[in-house]
Amino acid sequence: PQEEYKKRAKKALKKGDEDTAREALKRAGLSPDQAEEFIRRFL
């Protein structure tokens, strides 16, 4: 589910792994723009 992928993305970002985070967010159904926004907000 979407929440699970978002959790995964946050874990990846904590490790500084933005590529894995983007992949997880893409799987969560976010557009690339939404994924970038999510990452920017998190960092």
Rank of each mutant, 00 (worst) to 15 (best):
K15Y: 12
R8D: 11
S31I: 03
K14N: 09
L13T: 01
R22S: 03
K10R: 14
G16I: 02
F42M: 07
P1Y: 14
A35R: 06
A12Q: 03
E36P: 00
L13F: 02
L43F: 11
T20Y: 10
Y5R: 03
E3F: 07
R27M: 15
A28H: 02
D19N: 11
P1K: 14
G29S: 03
L25S: 00
E37W: 04
K11R: 13
D19G: 11
L43R: 11
G29A: 03
G29C: 02
A24I: 15
I39M: 05
L13N: 01
K10W: 08
F38H: 02
R22D: 00
Q34H: 05
K10S: 08
A9L: 03
A12V: 03
A28R: 01
R41I: 11
K6P: 04
P32D: 13
D17E: 06
A9R: 01
S31V: 03
L30W: 07
E18L: 15
E23G: 05
R27Q: 14
L43I: 09
K15A: 14
L25K: 00
E37H: 06
E36F: 04
E23N: 07
L13S: 01
G29Y: 02
Q34G: 05
G29T: 01
L30V: 04
F38N: 00
S31L: 07
K14V: 13
E23S: 07
A24G: 03
A21T: 02
L43D: 06
E3R: 09
A28W: 03
L13H: 01
K15G: 11
L43H: 11
G16S: 04
R40M: 09
L43P: 06
K14R: 13
S31H: 06
K11S: 13
Q2G: 11
E36A: 07
A35E: 06
D17N: 06
A35K: 01
T20M: 10
R27H: 12
K15P: 01
K26L: 13
K10F: 07
A35V: 14
A9G: 02
A12N: 03
K11Q: 14
A28C: 05
F42P: 01
F42G: 04
R27I: 10
A9W: 02
K26I: 12
L43W: 11
R27D: 11
Q34P: 00
E36M: 06
S31K: 05
L43C: 10
R22V: 04
K14T: 12
I39Q: 00
S31R: 06
R40F: 09
K6S: 05
K14Q: 14
D33W: 07
K11E: 15
P1H: 14
L43Y: 15
E36Y: 04
K6Y: 15
E18T: 14
R27C: 10
K6D: 05
P32F: 10
E36Q: 06
D19W: 10
E18D: 07
E3W: 10
T20E: 13
P1N: 14
F42Q: 06
R41Y: 09
P1S: 14
L13P: 01
L25N: 00
D19L: 11
K7E: 15
D19F: 12
Q34V: 06
Q34F: 05
E23M: 05
S31A: 08
R40H: 11
A21S: 02
D33V: 11
D17Y: 04
R41W: 11
A9K: 01
D33S: 11
E4M: 09
G29E: 03
A21I: 02
R41P: 01
E36K: 05
K26G: 09
P32L: 10
A35T: 12
D33C: 11
R40K: 13
K11P: 01
K14I: 14
R22Y: 07
K26H: 12
A35H: 02
G29W: 01
E37M: 05
R8L: 15
A21N: 00
A12Y: 06
Q2R: 11
R22H: 05
R27W: 08
R8C: 12
R27Y: 09
K11F: 05
E36V: 04
K7A: 12
K7L: 07
R40W: 09
K14W: 09
Q34W: 04
A21F: 02
S31P: 06
L25D: 00
T20P: 02
R27P: 01
I39G: 00
T20Q: 10
I39C: 03
K15F: 10
E4L: 07
K7P: 03
R40T: 09
A28M: 06
T20V: 09
S31Y: 04
P32A: 12
L13V: 03
L25I: 02
E36D: 12
R8F: 10
L13C: 04
Q2I: 12
K10H: 09
K6N: 05
F38M: 05
A28E: 02
D19K: 13
R22L: 07
R40N: 11
E23P: 00
R22M: 07
P32K: 10
E3P: 07
R8V: 14
E4D: 14
Q34S: 06
K7S: 10
E36R: 05
D17A: 04
R27F: 10
R22I: 05
K26P: 01
R27A: 14
E4I: 08
E4T: 05
A35W: 04
A24L: 15
Y5I: 06
L43E: 08
F38Q: 02
R22C: 06
G16Y: 04
P1R: 13
K10Y: 11
A12H: 05
A9E: 01
E3A: 09
D19Y: 10
K6G: 04
K10I: 15
T20N: 07
E4Y: 11
R8S: 11
R22P: 00
E18G: 07
A28P: 00
L25M: 03
A28L: 05
T20A: 13
K26T: 10
L25P: 00
K10Q: 12
L13R: 01
E23H: 07
G29H: 03
D19M: 12
K14A: 14
A28V: 03
D33R: 09
E3K: 09
G16D: 04
Y5G: 08
D33Q: 13
T20G: 14
L13M: 05
K6E: 13
P1L: 15
R27S: 12
